[in-house]
Design a protein around this nucleic acid. Structure first.
Lengths: 211, 211, 211, 211
DNA sequence: GATGAATGAGGATTCATTCAT
DNA sequence: AATGAATGAATCCTCATTCAT
């Protein structure tokens, strides 16, 4: 089983070329965004000629989308099963754990998602309509069903609580630089991973008013 | 007094050219990042020839930095005064209020900061060393002085609490698209601004273990 | 009396602006050629705004020509008087001395002339037709009148002898870098000036077959 | 065997693209200098898109250096073998002949070298340290060994004699325009080539005091 | 006369993409 | 599949020149 950040390392030479391209692209796009990365650079990272990329992906845009698609698929699966089962604190904790687990497996994807959110890109549009809105609705329903939540937040807070959950989940990846520079800890260590999971449960519990 | 998002609208034609360039650049850089914006586009937005930009800023990079510098100055002032006075819950709430206030005044800057954090850019480096680290140290000291905090979090959580505060503050701007698409609310409305401030206080209070 | 290379130093602030522009332009054009120098750079050297140049010269090209014109005028006068008097070795030596003298007074002009020759520029065209060809004709007639020359060179050599004279005269300026780097002497020193004059006489005497 | 000025004509369409670029660049750089030539113009001369140049040379500067490098290599070889064998008048004449021969093969290079000397460029720096200074030292030693030279020049003249040799060699190429305009002869004709060689030997002999 | 700002053309270089080999 | 070379558009930036102030 690959450890966290598996794709953050340069990939084995014997992986399929398409996979190696995806891996390199994922890292670079996560580091500098779509516009900040050139096809040449990706090719160079893979040890490939610039034009060879186009034997595997019809365009830079489609390569980018393939990266996202590959990275999002596990989340889609997690969310799909969750949407119907969000019944109580335990289910919520289980969901959180699976999400955090997956995020730590592909931290570049976490960054890419945050970039997409910042860019308000097309991918976000599709993502929103298909996965996030349903999950949000389910999540709100679940929260509404918990008396402690209803009592501890006013209606107006709820969106922020949800957004807060998003940031609690994704933040550590997008803010890795901040952690390193300001807090002085290596953000993607196994140590931090454990701490992230623990914190998430405690913080959620607290935000949920003790439930 | 200019309302929230003052600089989000194209600026008056009678403002100084440099200011109009800064305004246009701020909006575009916030929307699409440094690499995603061309000098030509900025110039076009101002109604200027491409080369005329260089009568006011020696390079695209320096224009970008000027945007950040202008946007960060108010925060610098807020943080400067705060660093010495972070004495208790009231001081904390006051600081939060001033920060949120400023963020809502210049939401583009909030996005730009999040982009800088994602990019781990040079600006972040300077920012970290000069202001964020000191503020973090002061903030941690303040938190350590509060018994409720010490009791309610384990040592390991603290960095996440701090990061969480960052996300509570900045998140709504960077995630505006998410709010609009998933939650279905207009994220930069006056309504949301009020809700943001209220939520922040409540959430902080709660994260601080009731203090 | 100004020493050699008078115009090679930045000029007095109280000289007329046009003169200061000419001085700066002369130095820069000599160093890097017409295409290698920008109007902005000249203006900067004079401490003037870019546009101010155009209060004194209608275009970069015309400034360049003014530099040449100013620099060439003394030579024109020398050559004009010489063309009619080139009667024997003494007249020849006197002409040489006056030419070398003038060249050392304005070494930048010497370089500029060599650049013009390399570029086969328009200035060279006018120069050739008006002064150089007449002087050449007169010079050849003078040489033909000297038995030692007739005897010591074949007809075919004469153009090269003349060209050689040109290079003996102008070479040390255009090749100043060579002198400095290869021979290891400071090429524009007073010492070298004296040596140049002495050498020229000896070399000419020798090339002229002892006359 | 290619005649003189072989590279002065636009090159065969079936030569390698890099070679055709080098050929076009050599001609243009010789005519107008580095700053006076645009990449677009070189590309146009080769019938290539502007950007295609960069498939063969990473920058204009490096293309320029490649032109020089290619042109200088034969001289390097000539000088390398000569530096050790400069034993007497015959060796000197042989060296001269080989140099003139090579210069007439690549007259553009002769002009380029003169431009470099005028510009005091980086190439000149490297050239000086590696080839010219050693050759100069060897040449001076050779001259010092010849009694006629010692007797016919004063110590102070020697650098000028050496510079004079340089100009006798390279002058006709850089001054081609002068020859054409003032003397009225076609400077790069086979006729002139022969005359150049003959003159050089005679002039050298004379400058060397008959040796 | 000087200035700062404007302009359009052109500077070198990079871009994503195509295509023959 | 992979490559090297080609392309046209776009990149940032500098150019000479103009003009209102």
């Amino acid at each position: 089983m690959p450890g966290p950040g598996a794709r953050a390392q340069p990939t084995d030479a014997d992986a399929s070329t398409a996979t190696r391209i995806l891996d390199a692209a994922e890292i670079l796009f996560a580091q500098r965004g779509f516009a900040g990365v050139s096809v040449r650079e990706i090719a160079g990272q893979v040890g490939l000629n610039q034009g060879s990329i186009y034997n595997h992906f019809p365009s830079k845009q489609s390569l980018y989308e393939a990266v996202l698609q590959r990275g999002l698929t596990p989340f889609r699966e997690i969310l799909e099963s969750a949407a119907t089962e969000l019944t109580g604190p335990d289910a919520r904790d289980a969901l959180l754990e699976r999400l955090v687990d997956q995020l730590w497996r592909t931290p570049n994807i976490a960054k890419l998602i945050q970039r997409e959110v910042l860019d308000d890109g097309e991918v976000l549009e599709r993502l929103s309509e298909q996965w996030l809105r349903p999950i949000y609705t389910a999540g709100r329903a679940a929260m509404d069903a918990v008396p402690q939540v209803r009592e501890s937040w006013v209606e107006r807070d709820i969106p922020f609580v949800v957004l807060g959950m998003y940031h609690f989940l994704f933040g550590p990846f997008g803010s890795a630089a901040l952690t390193r520079r300001v807090i002085g800890e290596e953000p993607l260590s196994e140590d931090m991973r454990q701490a992230h999971i623990d914190f998430l449960k405690r913080a959620t519990h607290r935000l949920m008013g003790g439930a």
